[in-house]
Design a protein around this nucleic acid. Structure first.
Length: 292
DNA sequence: CACCTCTCCTGCAGGC
DNA sequence: TGCCTGCAGGAGAGGT
């Protein structure tokens, strides 16, 4: 379950270990991870073979490798995806889905148990794949526009947790970091965006950024190995979480047991005292039409 | 557009 | 022991 810090660690590893290499041959072992490729498994393999990898970039939880000729290899790790740089003769992993044999002794492997993730060729996508042009920048990105985010958040009527998970508004925030940021901000996730004060929205952004930064600082130290790995063990499971997964445990601020509720086919964890459930939005009285 | 729900996929935990 | 159900969850598809 890589969140943004883990994806950034993978990006950095790819930058170090595969940039400058040529993809000599591609083997697609399961069609699902390349389902988004317009050419299907065969087209994907053919289009990628022979290309030189010129970089390793990221937008939110998407990764892409710009290739010679202006195209890109676009990837998403989904829930359980890994990018591994392995010796060619290393034993295949249980959930190995795509092998990309590089010049030199190694190959890039896409391993994914649940196959929510995937790879695809993005024609003309070297600078920014058009498939992900709608994904917002993340709060760690130096070009992230804080004031714009706050303004947009405060115009939306959805609950603020739903908004944090909207990758078009801000990227890189998953269920875990959303719950942690809201706990730190003492905000309930159902509070509508347009019900937040300016100060609350700014504080929330600060906490989102802090949670990500802490995880990034932790995860970034343990991936200096030859192969790049994301297995869910890194980063946030070592951190002590204040809300996510803490059902029944006392809130670290007030001691009240953390609650868990169903939300968007998953769960939300929060402190019912520090993060009170919002009252139902006041029904605005109909404004009388004023004749000109 | 904004908003919301459904869906994809596998492995594991828990109940009986 | 083994079957069944529920759960984890990013983000696209599609409805209103």
């Amino acid at each position: 379950m890589p969140e943004l810090p883990e994806v950034e660690v993978v990006r950095a590893g790819l930058e170090r270990h595969v940039v400058g290499r040529t993809v000599e041959r591609v083997e697609v072992l399961h069609p699902r991870p390349v389902r988004r490729d317009p050419g299907g498994p065969e087209g994907f393999a053919a289009a990628l073979s022979g290309r030189v990898i010129e970089g390793a970039r990221r937008r939110g939880k998407y990764l892409w490798l710009p290739l010679d000729g202006g195209d890109a290899l676009l990837g998403h790790l989904g829930m359980s995806g890994q990018m591994l740089v392995q010796p060619r003769d290393a034993a295949p992993e249980r959930h190995l889905r795509v092998r990309m044999v590089l010049d030199g002794p190694r190959e890039l492997r896409f391993v994914d148990q649940r196959m929510f993730g995937g790879l695809s060729m993005s024609p003309g996508g070297a600078e920014l794949p058009p498939e992900i042009a709608h994904i917002a920048r993340d709060p760690i990105d130096p070009a992230f526009d804080d004031a714009e985010f706050v303004a947009r958040l405060r115009r939306r009527t959805s609950g603020v947790k739903r908004l944090l998970l909207d990758q078009g508004l801000v990227s890189g925030v998953g269920n875990i970091y959303a719950d942690e940021s809201l706990w730190r901000s003492r905000l309930h996730g159902e509070r509508p965006g347009d019900g937040l004060t300016r100060a609350q929205a700014w504080e929330l952004l600060g906490h989102v950024r802090a949670v990500m930064g802490e995880a990034l600082a932790q995860g970034g130290t343990s991936f200096d190995a030859l192969y790049v790995n994301v297995n869910g063990q890194s980063g946030y499971f070592d951190r002590s979480l204040d809300a996510y997964g803490q059902e029944g445990r006392p809130c670290r601020r007030c001691g009240t047991p953390i609650r868990r509720v169903a939300f968007m086919n998953r769960s939300s964890f929060f402190c019912g005292v520090c993060q009170p459930v919002p009252r139902r939005r006041r029904v605005r009285p109909a404004t009388a039409a004023v004749p000109d």
